[in-house]
Computed example of a mutant assay.
Amino acid sequence: MARTLRLEFPGAIYHVTVRGNERRTIFRADADRVRFLEKLAGKVDEHHIRLYAYVLMPNHFHLLLETPRANLSRFMQEFNTAYTVYFNRRHERTGHLFAGRYKARLVEGDPYLLRLTRYIHLNPVCTDAMREQSFEEKRRFLHAYRWSSYRSYVGIVRRESWVDYGPLMELVAAGSRDREQEYQQFVEAGLAQSDAELQTVMSRSSKAIGSEEFCRRAEEAYRELAGSQGQVLDVAMRRRENPFPLETVISAICSHFQVTPEFLRLRRGTHVARLLAMKLLKEEAGLTQREIAVWLGLKDGSGVSRHLAVLNHMLESDEQLARTYRSIRKAIRG
């Protein structure tokens, strides 16, 4: 059987679904889920993926992600292999864990990102066992469910440094001081009423999620890809160019704060310029946390991870800092 073609370009957004072989469970204990998330976090950083949402179910998982480096296939192959090797060794089994290749549909950006995250985050209460439960019972179950990004979006638990919360929070509550509450209300409205419009959108194409025009262009791009033996032709669908040079990012930060690169590299502690350098080197220059640590003189990527978690929390509560971040990012992008 021919392998499924993947349309890849910088800035592509995908809804990825992976199911267990013969719909069998892919997690036998919480330890498996913990290890799954550890490996996911590592591969997200290694491949410069922007992960917007995830959920783990007994026999499948969902990811909503963006690929600034047009590398979905490599990321998914390495991640699925890493978890399969772990799972087979731990449970003394052999053979395939997942059912064939993963399903990945292109997403048409902002108009559908919010609704897709709601769809993903509501998965745990859309099972047969939960379908007849009351609104409050579903809500309590959702708040207690540990294996998705939802609880960290709404402030029940601390945010994870390898999940990119910013774009979705800006979409749901631009200008609001309590974005977590706004997002919680948006998602939990789906407990009472299904999103019929999203269901219609998701049924339009097996290749894409979006408007009729977007789905048509995606289908055409896949046909061209099949005819060109893997050469991607649909440049018009790109959202973002390749990462910016490290020097461009550092220059923008130094210019804004009137400091030198040496100040960023040699200063210890959590000066805001240094924190923003970590975030923008990751987002705009595409560096891994380990590479950022080396440049800034830290011991390893775990230090960067901790600082990013602090900064992301600050950005949610400090509008002046958020404006500074957006201003520097705008300067980098020209």
Rank of each mutant, 00 (worst) to 15 (best):
A2N: 13
T4M: 15
T4K: 14
L5V: 08
E8Q: 10
I13H: 05
Y14P: 01
T17K: 13
V18R: 13
R19M: 06
R19V: 05
G20Q: 03
G20P: 02
A29F: 06
D30S: 03
D32C: 08
R33S: 09
F36R: 03
F36M: 06
L37W: 08
E38Y: 11
G42C: 09
K43G: 12
V44T: 03
V44R: 02
L51S: 07
A53I: 00
Y54K: 02
N59M: 07
P68V: 04
N71T: 10
R74F: 04
M76P: 00
N80H: 15
Y86G: 05
E92T: 06
T94L: 09
T94V: 12
G95V: 07
H96E: 09
Y102I: 09
A104L: 07
L106I: 02
G109M: 01
R118L: 05
Y119D: 03
L122F: 12
C126W: 12
Q133P: 02
L142Q: 01
A144C: 13
Y145N: 01
R151A: 04
I156P: 00
S161W: 14
L168G: 13
L171D: 02
R177W: 15
E180A: 15
Q185W: 15
V187K: 05
Q193W: 03
D195T: 01
Q199W: 03
V201K: 04
V201R: 03
S206Y: 05
I209R: 02
S211L: 12
S211E: 11
R217Y: 01
Y222W: 07
E224G: 10
L225S: 07
L225Y: 10
A226H: 03
Q229A: 13
V232A: 12
V235D: 07
N242D: 13
T248F: 10
T248I: 08
V249F: 06
C254G: 00
S255R: 15
H256M: 12
F257H: 10
V259C: 15
P261V: 10
L264I: 05
H271S: 14
A273L: 00
L275S: 09
A277P: 05
L281N: 05
E283V: 11
E283N: 13
T288C: 05
I292S: 11
G297F: 11
L298D: 02
L298S: 04
K299I: 04
D300N: 13
G303S: 11
V304P: 12
A309W: 06
V310R: 15
M314L: 05
L315C: 05
D318P: 01
A322Q: 14
R323Y: 03
T324H: 08
Y325N: 07
S327V: 11
I328A: 06
I328W: 08
I332D: 08
R333S: 06
